[in-house]
Nucleic acid binder design. Structure first.
Lengths: 175, 175
DNA sequence: GTGGACATGTAATCTGTTACATGATTCA
DNA sequence: TGAATCATGTAACAGATTACATGTCCAC
């Protein structure tokens, strides 16, 4: 799975500009994928050159022009090939977890500060996910619902475990 | 955070070879970081050239010789610089979640098959983590414990949500 | 005699990010 | 007047993976 697959997938529901795609990725998607403009624009150019999507320039008033892309039949085939191809394993890379793993080499108060930040972060993300679920529920597919439910319960479990962990760390601190 | 930081961290507890490092990364670490030999060996060479670690060749009988690396004072400083530097946000990339998000374009039975595979996978990983926790608990630091607890509760929550999701999907299938 | 564990290393390639470059409009 | 949003694009670089290359010993 790469940016190409994701972009094709997003275009399956209708035309979009590079800018639109970026924002879509930042909202619902951000939990399990992301891409920068430096990836999105070159990928769109490449897909267009190869005939998987087609470009239309839209002249706007009071705003810069934009390029809106539509998926072609060839593009739909390519997306289906991705969906039926081999599944890649999840990738998770966490700086915070790494620091926790090496926690014995870091001052306790610094560690606790970091974990409290993480906790706040998890709360924020949970709130955003819950809000999104409320707003978009009517238009979500069954599997999209599972997707967001996984995200929500993941954050809830993180919050529980972190809270307990921080408490225990603080106790060992007092001794 | 990159391979260099992780390798230095692993060497903080004692000397290791590239092969050792690979195996360590695959066991406890695999939940939040990973690296291939193609990354590990060049990184070790580079760190040695720069004086952050030192190499000793160990001649073994019945096995190929190996290069064992020890962290230097300079290396310890570099690792501390990492631990006190800016924290990078978590990165999560999931092909399965992406396919779930685009689930409306995939046959239901294929989707259910994929999710059942994921469920089995989650069970396996949970078992491995639980086993590891049992075995290594006595020698784990408090923050390492939090680390593995996060991993365990994460998998538990995934199993719950996936199980429910699959059941619901199957029901909509019957209608 | 074949596959797996041990052990190291390089070259080609992929995939992506960051920073730079440009420029209009709107809102405070 | 300065920041934010809209909008696109490129070049330099980073960081990693995969496949290749090599070779021993042990167990089945």
């Amino acid at each position: 799975m790469n940016s190409q697959d994701v972009i094709l997938g997003l275009l399956m529901r209708g035309e979009m500009s590079g800018y639109d795609i970026k924002h879509r990725l930042e909202s619902i998607f951000s939990f399990f994928y992301n891409a920068s403009f430096g990836t999105i624009y070159p990928t769109l150019s490449k897909l267009e050159k190869e005939g998987y999507i087609s470009k239309m320039s839209v002249i706007q008033e009071g705003r810069p022009n934009k390029n809106v892309y539509t998926i072609t039949e060839e593009g739909k085939k390519l997306f289906q090939a991705y969906l039926h191809g081999p599944i890649e394993r999840n990738e998770f890379k966490s700086d915070v977890m790494t620091r926790m793993f090496f926690g014995e080499f870091l001052e306790k108060d610094v560690m606790i500060g970091m974990l409290e930040n993480q906790l706040q972060d998890a709360h924020d993300k949970l709130n955003r996910l819950t809000e999104m679920y409320k707003v978009y529920k009517p238009e979500m597919s069954p599997t999209q619902e599972i997707c967001i439910q996984i995200g929500i319960s993941d954050k809830e479990s993180l919050i529980r475990t972190l809270t307990q962990g921080i408490e225990r760390l603080k106790k060992t601190n007092e001794k």
